[in-house]
């Protein structure tokens, strides 16, 4: 299968496959390394779709059997949430 280097991988930050391959060429061996070089996974959805695609691309260059070494960077919140809803306590309000 030939690579379409301008295929969009991270839609939020408009990062293409070519840019991700270039980051790997520059030494990135983790999702975090690709993120720092390209901004991929840093947008509104925080990599919910592209993270898997990036791991897929990385798998051709590094051993992905040890997933802890990939620094995949999943963090709270799992979904976008309003601050109000995050700090509200039943019976106590926002304080």
């Amino acid at each position: 299968m030939s690579h379409e280097k301008n295929v969009c991988i991270c839609r939020c930050e408009e990062v293409t496959e070519g840019e991700i391959l270039r980051a790997i060429e520059e030494g990135a061996r983790t999702v975090k390394g690709i993120k720092i070089r390209t901004q991929a996974t840093m947008g509104l959805c925080q990599g919910r779709t592209c993270r898997r695609l990036i791991v897929n691309i990385l798998s051709k260059h590094v051993d992905i059997n040890d997933i802890s070494k990939l620094e995949i960077g999943i963090r709270v919140p799992v979904r976008t949430i309003k601050i109000k809803n995050f700090i509200y306590d039943e019976g106590k309000g926002y304080e």
Binding site: L44, Q46, R75, T80, I81, K82, I83, K84, I87, Y94
Partner: peptide, 17 residues
């Protein structure tokens, strides 16, 4: 943050680190 700038609680958070 909400105590000092009350309006801030209406924004969505996308990440913590």
């Amino acid at each position: 943050a909400g105590k000092l700038i009350p309006g801030i609680v209406n924004f969505n958070i996308i990440r913590t680190f």
